[in-house]
Each structure stands twice: as C-alpha cells, then as structure tokens.
C-alpha cells in the first residue's frame, strides 16, 4: 500500500464501469451474452489499468512508462481486427447480411470505446492525485456524460423522411413508387412479393444526406436491421425473395423493398428510423471549400 494505491484502484474501477456502461446487448445481439461480454469487460479492465497507472508513473518521473500507452493502442487495434474478422466470418450465415460497412462501424466503435475507457481512468486518477476523491468523482461523472454523448450517433430519422408505398409490378419489373427494384419473372414469385413485400421511400432532408444514404454499406445496414427486427420472408435457395434498396438517380431518394413477417407499417417506419447512421457513410459535400465559395458568390 502506498499513496498511489487508492487513486489507481479508483481509476480502474471507474474505467471498468465506463466500459460496462458502453457495453449494451440490444436487438443486434452483438456482443453475444456472457462469453462475448466477458471478452470486452476483460479488455476494458486492462484499458482502465493502463489509463490509471499513467499519472502515477509520470509523478514518479518514470516517463518511459507512458510508452505503455502505445502498446495499448496497438493492442486495441488488434481488438478491432478481431471484431472485424469474427463478424465478417459470421456474416455469410445471415439471411440478410450486415455488410462490410456495418461491420467496420461496429469494429471502430469497439476500438474507440477502449480509448474512452483509458481516458476516463486517466482523468479520474489524475484528479484524485492532484486534488481529492470528491473532485475525482465529479470528473468521472463529467467523463460518463461525455461518453454518453460520444456513444449515441444520429439515426436515419434525423436524415430522411420515410413514406410507405405499396410495391407494384409493371410487366416483370418490380417498382416501389417510381424506383425500379428488380426483374421478377415467375408469376408465383410476383404474387409472393406483392403479398409479403412492403415498400418505403426515404427522401433525403438535405443535399449532404443524399450521398450518405446512397452508400451501399448504409443501405445494407438498413436492410439488416429491418430484417432482424421484423423478421424476413426468405430462405437459402430463394434468391428472388431478397430485400433490396435502389436509388432514384434524379433526386437521390431511395426505395426500400422489405419482406417482413410482421407487416406493421408504423413499426417498420420506426425501425427504419432508428437504424444508426454509419460513421463511414457520412459525407459532407456542403463543407467542401469549392461548395462554400459558390455559396458566397
């Protein structure tokens, strides 16, 4: 026991709690219960330990100890690779795959969250050592609030207006509103799609959104989330019954065709609305210098 024991212990505990807060198993069912969670809690604990020993190390003039953090960084990059590989491996067994865009987004979140844990532990142990435990508790609460803000990205309903449109056929061509989806030849398949299919038109609220929802990864994420939440009328060996999203080239709207087992329009709208916007799909053409200049003239 020395003067650093309690600050380090405090840092480790609040760091681990931070990881626990960020680890939620929701409708995506990832990470899986227990085993998947244990992996991430253990890594969170390690991250918290690294974060909280950094400050005492500096105080003891052990400056080289900070290089530990670089090892931590490469360790967590490894976590990201691990997540990516696992999910990509599992993706081939999904009836409606997540798609690489979604997988990359999840992997990035896992890496990023470990850094947030290091940051929380570092701030907590620093405040404890520099002032006292009360200031440290206040700083921790501040960090938790910050984490919550980082965690919740925007969702589709912030970007688009969602309208229901019954899919229809024009000859063999399947349409949602005026957006061509695919060619279905067999009359039986056509009947099934008319019976089970639901169409939605997602209209972008501004110009930036157009390229975001055009991203193939983002579109696949919508299809995957809807299929998870509403069920999907499909099996292996029925490639014609596949949920699809196509784009209207004229105005950037996208037409979503889904084949849910639960045909509840309001629920489907809510599910589409709460699909997370993938970080790597976000584009901001309005932020570019070329566009800004045009606006100023």
């Amino acid at each position: 026991m020395n003067e650093y024991t309690y600050p380090i212990l405090f840092g480790v505990v609040v760091g681990t709690i931070a990881r626990l807060m960020m680890l939620r198993t929701d409708y995506r069912q990832y990470p899986t219960y227990l085993h998947g969670k244990v992996i991430h809690l253990a890594l969170g604990f390690i991250a918290a330990g690294l974060g909280s020993v950094a400050v005492p190390a500096i105080m003891e003039k052990e400056f080289t100890a900070v290089t530990f953090l670089t090892i931590a960084a490469s360790q967590f990059r490894e976590v990201r690779n691990m997540e990516r590989n696992t999910l990509a491996e599992l993706d081939s067994f999904e009836l409606v795959p997540r798609g690489n865009g979604y997988i990359e987004g999840i992997a990035i979140a896992f890496e990023g969250r470990n850094y947030l844990v290091i940051f929380t532990s570092l701030v907590a142990s620093l405040c404890y050592l520099a002032w006292n435990i009360w200031i440290a508790i206040l700083a921790t609460i501040g960090c938790y609030l910050l984490i919550r803000k980082f965690m919740s990205g925007s969702t589709m309903k912030d970007l688009v207006d969602i309208d229901f449109k019954q899919p229809h056929f024009d000859g063999a061509g399947l349409y949602v509103d005026n957006i061509y989806i695919m060619n279905i030849g067999l009359p039986d398949r056509q009947k099934e799609i008319l019976k089970y299919g639901m169409g939605f038109i997602l209209t972008p609220k501004n110009f930036n959104v157009r390229s975001t929802i055009a991203n193939l990864g983002q579109r696949q994420a919508i299809l995957h989330d809807v299929s998870v939440s509403m069920g999907v009328f499909r099996d292996s060996g029925t490639p014609a019954l596949v949920p699809l999203i196509k784009r209207d080239l004229d105005d950037g709207r996208i037409g979503v065709l889904i084949l849910p087992q639960d045909k509840d329009i309001e629920k489907a709208k809510r599910v589409i609305g709460s699909v997370p916007v993938l970080e790597n799909a976000i584009r901001m053409p309005s932020e570019s210098k070329a566009n800004k200049k045009k606006g100023a003239n």
């Binding site: 000859g171 063999a172 695919m182 060619n183 279905i184 030849g185 398949r189 490639p239 014609a240």
Partner: peptide, 8 residues
C-alpha cells in the same frame, strides 16, 4: 435448383 433468379 440453380439458386438463381428467373428474370422475364
């Protein structure tokens, strides 16, 4: 059988 889609 072929795991493909019939297009007309």
């Amino acid at each position: 059988i072929l795991d493909g889609i019939s297009h007309a």
